[in-house]
Amino acid sequence: MSNNRQILSDYVLHLADNALILGQRNSEWCGHGPVLEQDIAITNISLDLIGQARSLYQYAAQLIGNGATEDRLAYLRDAREFRNCLLVELPRGDWAVTTLRQFFFSAYQMLLFQQMLHSSDTTLAAIAEKSLKEVTYHVRWSSEWVIRLGDGTEESHNRMENALADLWAFTGELFVPSDYEKSVADNGIGVDVSSLKDNWLQKVQDVFNEATLTIPTTTWFQSGGKEGIHTEHLGYLLADLQFLQRAYPGMEW
């Protein structure tokens, strides 16, 4: 594989892993949501994310060749090879953590895909276009929940603040480009994520104003996921996700 191709496939895997891992996390809610309508909504978002992951893995598999498939990429890589941001692998927590994380991530994804529409890579541009419709809904749904819970009862407000304390340190990583992100951004294929941060902060500020929440002043952010240095949570998530393919290798399902 040429160097450029390698970098592109790393990038596509990073995008795919983000979508898969968050889709997997959200799917844990299925059957356990706070009310039936929201059980359906979070499952829907999970489905959208897994759909995005599939398109991206299929593309990555094509770039990698050598018998790679979407399932091999999702099921047979170990934690160190996953390139998702730490934010998406954190446990689902309560409804405050789930909706706030979704809001942070979807707001980022929306800005990302809006830029990716102009990618010189037509496959990525097409995936961005398709995903944008879904992500626009995810942003609306999650920001409504952040507002509702932030400006709801005392308990819901406290829970939102706790969620914010848990999650904030993991948002910085979204906007610090890894080497492969820098390379594809320079080539006009990928998006320079550092350029998204101001707009993202503005969006968060707007929603937080309504939600009566305050953006933390902490400036230290966790990172490492993009290079495969993860939290301890990812291993367990993958143990679940990959169980059948690991226990019964090489079979058709």
Binding site: W95, R148, L149, G152
Partner: peptide, 9 residues
């Protein structure tokens, strides 16, 4: 608490 917060909001 989620349903309650939604109603109050």
């Amino acid at each position: 608490w989620v349903r309650q917060a939604a109603a109050v909001h």
